[in-house]
Nucleic acid binder design. Structure first.
Lengths: 202, 202
DNA sequence: GTCTATATTAAGATAGAC
DNA sequence: GTCTATCTTAATATAGAC
């Protein structure tokens, strides 16, 4: 339901989305089952389908709610700000998203891995346009000699790759670091700040 | 079958694994179906199960064949070589793996995303040990002042993240770059060489 | 070795009582 | 609004003919 009326509808809709996020982000769309989602949500399977007409509808509701949040940090990059600080702020916010919303990151990763069947239009439309717009800003900064010259779109790719890695490959990160370091994010933040400062220094 | 006897068994086993790679890498283990694999392989479903006893057996055969190949470039990093050139060679080989074996990369990504249920032991064992061994080499290079000091394990994570991104998020990379640039790898190679040269310069 | 036919289980979705 | 029971389809796997 996009417009829940009562308190209980509001609460159950959210409970279902949260449970669905848990399951879809781990198994992908086809690998997820309504039985699992129902169990995690603590509701019966028919009750899920009272709130959302189908499995696909739940998935769509999740993805469309997610995309704006996911692109906000990039939108927030200010063309009039200090170039290096704007980029580092973007890296920092993106890493915070990985830390605070790892399931959302994995849901997105699953969708892209599977060929983005449900969000291809948005990727080729809004996302493409936003990246090209910000790439133009980066290019201007490079022309003005305020950051080093690199390929602007690949620069953005590298920010995505480096920050999302900590959410999407969480299991591997923890296994490789070993049980000594339970929270990799503080060190990851320092590492990425160093990396981008050195890359962008003129 | 791990030990095919006849030519035809050899060929069919490989056809099945190739088809399974195609399907598993796109949909994950649970999202993949034997029907799809059979169709891609051009064989009947029961014929698949003549060669492999179960869906799980096919998946295991794929993963165990993959892991060695995947870690070879890291193993090849020579402690006695020139530090920057050894690291750049590793980045280059890893990027070539993404370019030449994107399905393998996505199969691995799917498995990790899903919590690595089938290869957790290898991740925590062999992979952990190999990374710690190579991290020690990197630390020595830093102590000797031959590369800049950064967290060695996060350095390795960043190589993985940046190179695998081009295989795993292929759809997004192409959509964002637009139809003008069909092959992102040459530019990606230049970008990553610049990035790691600047990061590691003393 | 390969296929058709089928057993068996699980999954998405619906009916209808409460 | 929520549940039990159930329909229907699709999926893994097996039997058995050829």
């Amino acid at each position: 339901m996009s417009k829940p009326r009562t308190k209980i509808q509001q609460r159950n809709s959210e409970t279902i989305l949260d449970a669905a996020l848990e399951v879809f982000s781990q198994h992908g769309f086809r690998g997820a089952t309504l039985d699992q989602i129902a169990e995690v949500a603590g509701l019966s399977k028919p009750n899920l389908l009272y709130y959302y007409p189908s499995k696909e509808a739940i998935h769509v509701a999740l993805l469309s709610g997610l995309l704006d949040t996911w692109l906000d940090p990039l939108r927030a990059m200010d063309p009039e700000g200090d170039p290096v600080e704007e980029l580092l702020a973007y890296v920092r916010r993106k890493l915070e998203l990985s830390r605070d919303f790892p399931r959302e990151s994995r849901l997105f990763a699953n969708e892209i891995l599977q060929g983005a069947p449900r969000i291809r239009a948005v990727i080729e439309g809004d996302l493409h346009a936003l990246v090209q717009e910000k790439a133009a800003v980066l290019t201007r900064w490079m022309d003005e000699g305020r950051i080093a010259r690199v390929h602007p779109v690949h620069l953005i790719f590298s920010i995505w790759a480096l920050t999302q890695h900590y959410a999407d490959f969480d299991v591997q990160v923890h296994a490789v670091l070993g049980p000594g370091e339970p929270d990799p994010y503080p060190e990851a933040g320092r590492y990425l700040e160093t990396l981008f400062r050195r890359l962008l220094a003129v």
